[in-house]
């Protein structure tokens, strides 16, 4: 075929005939590498309440980490002559029933609350993301059973479910992680599943399938990175609820056990003296409030910052 010959000497790498494709003329938009996270970060910075939330969280974290070095009192040392003292110069937050310095106990309690907030929220988000992606991507029976399981978990009042788990496993810190993770994954999995369903239909996923990319690679390379912003929001939002649940469990006596200075436990112990020494219950209660609010502000800000990019 003489057609072939013509093609072979017609080496039109870039036919520069004044029309079509002259590479030099194709300019890329000016603003240099600009990532989604960059944009999100900028939007986050503009949100004042989110920034305040972030600062509070950072402040509490630093305080909790440096607690042993900055505190003049030990949170476990009892002083029975000094019971239920109101706030004073020696004890800024007063003392509790056993004369322990309340400020030391609250600051040490922050360590527990932060750990309880972060670890179960992280575990729940991981479990939820993986199950959600699998459910959305594979569909069919996998989807059916994972989602029914999620329905069951969501149908229980979460605190009740956590209590049942704690009673069965025994009350200690490690079991709180397990209980809160089991309670928390279901809502994450729903959110990730619905995003996966939308992403699965996108043409870039189809392009990957057309290239013969393996399913698992598609999930990790194409689906999960695009869910990541949402997963981060869910993660931030589930931290305060984990903190609240731990406080609830400890308050009810199935969470952290005395003498651990968990905030929930502090409130619980203080409640007996709520009329004679109200600060013993109120100060840890306010601490819970502040930390939970700070995380909520952060989560809200993150969600607002990410939202516009999730729409298109």
């Amino acid at each position: 075929m003489h057609d072939d010959e013509r093609v072979s000497d017609n080496k039109m790498k870039t036919p520069d005939s004044g029309q079509g494709i002259a590479p030099e003329k194709i300019e890329v938009k000016k603003d240099d590498v600009e990532t989604l996270f960059g944009d999100v970060f900028r939007a986050f910075q503009k949100n004042r309440s989110a920034l305040v939330g972030l600062c509070v969280v950072l402040f509490i974290t630093v305080l909790a980490l440096s607690a042993p070095y900055v505190l003049s009192h030990d949170p476990y040392t009892m002083n029975l002559d000094n019971r239920n003292q109101p706030p004073s110069e020696a004890h800024w937050f007063g003392t509790d029933t056993y004369g322990r310095d309340l400020m030391a106990r609250v600051i040490f309690g922050a360590r527990i609350s932060l750990v309880i907030g972060l670890i179960p929220a992280f575990l729940a988000t991981c479990i939820g993301s993986i199950l959600g992606v699998a459910s959305g991507f594979y569909g069919g029976k996998t989807d059916f059973w994972i989602m029914r399981l999620a329905d069951v978990v969501l149908a229980f009042p979460s605190l009740l479910l956590a209590m049942v788990i704690m009673y069965t496993l025994g009350a200690n810190l490690f079991n709180i992680f397990i209980a809160l993770s089991i309670v928390g994954w279901a809502s994450t999995s729903r959110i990730v599943r619905s995003q996966t369903l939308a992403l699965k239909e996108k043409e870039f996923v189809e392009a990957a399938r057309a290239l013969g990319v393996k399913k698992r690679t598609i999930i990790f390379r194409h689906i999960l990175p695009n869910c990541l912003p949402n997963i981060m929001v869910v993660f931030t939002m589930s931290i305060p609820s984990a903190i609240m649940q731990e406080a609830g469990l400890s308050f009810l006596g199935v969470g952290a056990q005395p003498p651990t200075p968990s905030w929930g436990l502090l409130v619980s112990q203080g409640k007996e003296f709520i009329f004679s020494a109200p600060w013993v219950a109120i100060i840890p209660g306010v601490a819970i409030l502040i930390l939970v609010l700070a995380f909520n502000f952060m989560g809200d800000g993150l969600r607002d910052a990410i939202d516009p990019y999730m729409k298109d």
């Binding site: 043409e203 189809e206 392009a207 057309a210 013969g212 390379r221 194409h222 990541l228």
Partner: peptide
């Protein structure tokens, strides 16, 4: 065999992974 058969899509906004 997929290397022999490929596809170009309609929507240039949806056909490229925005995170890559």
């Amino acid at each position: 065999l997929r290397r022999k058969m490929q596809i170009i899509f309609q929507d240039p906004y949806a056909s490229l992974n925005p995170r890559m």
